[in-house]
Amino acid sequence: MAIRRGRGVAAINYPTGMNLGGDPTQALVHSTPTGNFMVTLSSVDLGQGMKQIMAQICAETIGVPTDRVVVDTADTDTGPHCMGTFASRGTHRAGNAVIQAAREARQVMLEVAAEELEVNASDLETDGQGNILVKGAPQRSISIFDVALSAHFKRGRSISGRGMFLIPRSYPEKETGAMKPSTCYAHACTVAEVEVDDETGEVTVLTVKNVFEIGRALNPKLVEQQLVGGSWMGISHALYETTEPYYPNRDHGGTDFNQYLMPGPGDLAETEIIVLERPSADGPYGAKGPGEMCANPQIPAVANAVFDAVGVRIDTLPITPERILRALKAQAGAPN
């Protein structure tokens, strides 16, 4: 009886957005009288930082600092339609809608600035700090604060824009299954290292090294949050989680956090996250959806590592000590 070590690898891809498309999201953007910007949506923030990312996307597109953007969302009386926050679609779909709305608002903003500066709007650029400059002559400039005041009180213009993003729905061909499930895919490769106690069947995940390709990390810290939490959930799925431990038997389902098991703060694997960026052709600033795929590769990587450690295949999730011990017994030729 011994503690045995093993490691396993898995590589995966994952589609961004609802399968087969057809999932719209809209956004509205407008400026306040003093040149702050309001993004109006009906998308839901589940904790992934939807509001923060939409603010950064709007700010980048308009050309102002992020703290000048406020996101108002999840109210059906004010926010235009969003299909919902799921299917790794929030950043991709809503982000594209916000870009389109922000571009329209930016154009009006530049037109008003052009009137104030007596130049063509096409000769203007933003400095990202809240100012609009004449290209090549940055001493000729106007603040976005002043442009917004002018638009509101002098020129009678609405610095606002409408955005809509929709991937046309694909319908699978009946016999061949020809279809377009998604327009872009995130990727991952995970190497997991485990210890298996062949006496108790207990698995300890020592390390997980995750490489994720996510298009573009729009806010690296928010991406990191998703990826670290997802990696934890993947390990949790691999080793612990089930509402029906003896499926398809319907008994013994857990009803609280004492019975429904997940790794606690004392059960964490040493986790390494590396991010690659291959911008997607239709993503907002190249982003793909990282939220779901980041929890997938750890499951097979752990399963393969368990095999590498003790030489038994557990092809049924979760990989519990009971399953490992039964497999070890079977391998040794003992009755189950």
């Binding site: 904790g47 670290v228 939490g229 997802g230 934890w232 959930m233 997940m262 703060p265 964490l268 986790t271």
Partner: peptide, 10 residues
């Protein structure tokens, strides 16, 4: 219990 973060940041 935390279901989002994986505990390490906490």
């Amino acid at each position: 219990i935390c279901r989002c973060t994986g505990y390490e940041p906490i």
